[in-house]
């Protein structure tokens, strides 16, 4: 795992708006697109890749 700080900006896969991420954002984190408010999952870093976050499933939770 690389914990190096990256400063990449990624494009929202839904609306194309630029999404800036905090330095400590990691894979599987959920971010919200500032353009269309879609929930996005960080699926890879190097290069930074975003995908639409999966819907909450029936068995998710505490």
């Amino acid at each position: 795992m690389s914990l190096d700080t990256l400063t990449e900006r990624a494009a929202c896969p839904d609306c194309g708006a630029g999404v800036d991420l905090a330095a400590d954002t990691g894979v599987t984190e959920i971010v919200v697109c500032p353009g269309c408010t879609a929930e996005l999952e960080v699926v890879a870093v190097g290069p930074l890749t975003l995908a639409l976050a999966p819907e909450i499933e029936e068995d998710w939770g505490e």
Binding site: M1, S2, L3, L21, V27
Partner: peptide
């Protein structure tokens, strides 16, 4: 930024 599948020491 971190890659989830790895080791943080």
């Amino acid at each position: 930024m971190s890659d989830l599948s790895g080791t943080a020491t």
